[in-house]
Design a protein around this nucleic acid. Structure first.
Lengths: 246, 246
DNA sequence: TACCTCACGAATGTATACAATTCATACCAA
DNA sequence: TTGGTATGAATTGTATACATTCGTGAGGTA
């Protein structure tokens, strides 16, 4: 069984004695964002076991810290914590995926409606910058970066709306979506919709709330449609299990 | 300084040797719900320090468990975790309170719209039961129970909508609202709106989505209006501090 | 071969020991 | 008094030791 991926940290603590050693505290913060990023960027697949000891030695801390990080990731629904079994990268079910998308449609449409009424030109500029970066990643065919920037676009939308509560919700939903894509993305999926992000910005520029909501709704439904709606294939290879008696 | 409230558990572990000793596991679950309930029910005021050692001995477990519980409560925004200082019952700011209410209006209106289209008669029955219980608590003038049931009503609405993601969001928002009420409730607040819950149910009965959303929006705005919008009063008694030179 | 049992290894769950930080108090000096 | 510093208790942060659980596989029996 694949144990735990990379995290190629030098495990000995001696390298913390560097000149500007940052002070030991907050190490959990750093470890959390590293694992978080690794999950979001599909560097660790769903259902991968996250073993405490392995992570502890990899990051040069004790299991105490790792457990804290895993608990947080579990609360963020990126990790499943199974009692006495361990932590695993979450494997959202089809039903859960549907609910996440439904929630996104609801919450992000609220946000976009508010934004259409309140967004500043500076805000639109920020969104446009992200769109440009996305376009550039598209020409370079940099899939990882596109996924990243696509998420950032929605995050920035949520941040601009000026409601930290809803922004946090969107952050959770976007990261969970990333897991869903890792699990269910159909092989021949059309690269999603850079033009749809542009449609959203255009509607915001015109301060056209109705159109903005329509564009967002369409965009999210499009993403959802790209997902394989069928039940996930059982990963048991029955053919191999029940070999015909030769 | 008030240390830590009640939790009048016998602190020695010997009482776990009872006949049917339930098996030690999951103690954190129980402790979490006890503290959670104590915060929601206003048995512990905002800003109250939650000392690890005191809680540990009170509940007869080690600080390890308590820390886990506190981290979870912090993630649920009911507790502030200040590094090297400790855990305190959260004291949401006015701005945060506004954002929580805005989020509630958004999320719960989505849910009620969905419910109007999908709710079963059994679902309406569940809501009616809660309403009756609320009415009964009203006649008994049982304020604590009314607050509890009022929250349960919104929780049940969210649960009936069949989206676990949105239900969890509402659960978080409702519990945060409870903290906000503890902090900012104006003294002469009109007991909120049992009739408004009835209006919502009535609209659902008629499967009238528009009316249901209107009723919910009105209800939530009404609750928010009961809150003291002004900045929280400084708790420093200047009059007492600067006594006129007699 | 099929099946049951038991024991061992590996990983998680919990408690405790130790380190680091903060706050308050006391003490001293200007 | 006012300010600064140092000392010490109290509390949180982290690591480690110990307990418990679960899966696996060897070994035995029918």
């Amino acid at each position: 069984m694949q144990r735990v991926p990379g995290a190629t940290k030098s495990a000995d603590k001696s390298d913390r004695s560097g000149v500007a050693r940052k002070r030991a505290g907050r190490a959990d913060e750093r470890i959390h964002s590293e694992i978080y990023a690794a999950i979001i960027n599909h560097q660790i697949r769903p259902a991968t076991p996250l073993q405490e000891d392995a992570l502890a030695t990899a990051f040069g801390v004790s299991r105490t810290i790792i457990r804290k990080v895993l608990q947080r990731l579990a609360h963020e629904k990126l990790v499943d914590l199974i009692p006495n079994k361990g932590a695993f990268v979450a494997r959202p079910s089809i039903e859960e995926a549907r609910q996440v998308f439904e929630a996104r449609r609801g919450v992000e449409c609220i946000l976009i409606a508010k934004l259409a009424a309140t967004i500043s030109d500076a805000g639109i500029g920020r969104l446009t910058d992200l769109l440009d970066a996305e376009a550039e990643a598209l020409t370079r065919n940099d899939k990882k970066r596109r996924l990243q920037l696509s998420g950032d676009f929605h995050l920035e939308l949520a941040a601009l709306a000026g409601n930290a509560v809803l922004r946090d919700f969107v952050q959770e939903l976007v990261s969970r979506t990333s897991l869903i894509i890792a699990l269910y993305e159909s092989p021949g999926a059309v690269p999603c919709s850079q033009s749809e992000h542009r449609d959203i910005i255009d509607a915001l520029k015109r301060r056209d709330a109705k159109a903005a909501v329509r564009a967002m709704e369409h965009h999210l439904r499009h993403i959802e449609a790209q997902i394989d709606l069928a039940d996930q294939p059982s990963r048991v290879d029955f053919a191999a299990l029940f070999k015909p008696v030769a």
